[in-house]
Design a protein around this nucleic acid. Structure first.
Lengths: 135, 135
DNA sequence: TAATATTGTAACCTTATTTATTACAGTATG
DNA sequence: CATACTGTAATAAATAAGGTTACAATATTA
């Protein structure tokens, strides 16, 4: 899953913010997302691995935020879902005998790193609390 | 073609910058990219449609920059290749009966638009001339 | 003017990636 | 102990991306 990960995780976190201190089941979350519960659980595992949520197995189990929404910013969410925003690479290895082909990926990396830094610094200023307020 | 478009176009434009005032064939360009010449021609058509390059059919034909590399900035290239950088959406329509589901896409749009504006203003400051200098 | 090198473009094929489904073991609750 | 959950693997289906073939159109040059 690449394209939807960030959006799905943010949706889940927003739901959890609205129902703070309650365990929400993957079925409930899935019905808001209109997504298969197994996919929701997979995303939740990722959120769990990064200590953003906790979940409880068994009857009346589910998932809950692990910290206050004011302590979670959107850059954290981006980092654990997409890692880096890619603006794309040509899939094939460019010709190493061509001066451009040889260096293009390094140059793109540098450019993309700069762009990512800027994106991150913007997302860092936005907390889940703020994002959730508009719903 | 989504992921590679920006990188491929930038690679082509960089080559054209290095060989300014020469018509380069799609075969030559393809061998630097290690890509099928037909794909190169497809990308070139896009660059042509946006007046960044001109091309000439027939023997000794090929493609050449339509303007000085100092007059082309990377935001223009981004706009004609990816239009907008997407951070992803859940593929399904979220549940409109859920307050979060109903509004999530609008909220994501706003967020993504802000991020794109910032990316654009950064890329606008970078010309093809500058980008090509490091090869 | 004929051979050649090139672009332009459509149709189609292949592969990779994403998303969805099924199945079931494990676990906590009441 | 029945039930309602999570966790997770295996696999299938759908979609997207990239690659290939084929050939018409065009300009060059010998």
């Amino acid at each position: 899953m690449i394209s939807g990960k960030f959006a799905i995780s943010l949706h889940i976190l927003t739901l959890l913010t609205k129902f703070q201190h309650e365990y929400l089941s993957s079925d409930f979350i899935a019905s808001s997302l209109n997504l298969h519960p197994v996919l929701v659980r997979k995303e939740i595992i990722n959120l769990k691995n990064h200590q953003l949520v906790v979940s409880k197995e068994g009857k009346n189990g589910g998932t809950m935020l692990a910290k206050a929404p004011s302590q979670i910013n959107l850059d954290q969410v981006l980092k654990i879902t997409l890692e880096k925003v890619s603006f794309g690479y040509s899939k094939n290895h460019p010709n190493p005998n061509c001066p451009i082909g040889k260096k293009i990926n390094t140059q793109l990396d540098m450019l993309y790193t700069n762009l990512n830094n800027q994106i991150s610094s913007q997302l860092m200023t936005l907390t889940l609390e703020q994002f959730s307020k508009d719903f």
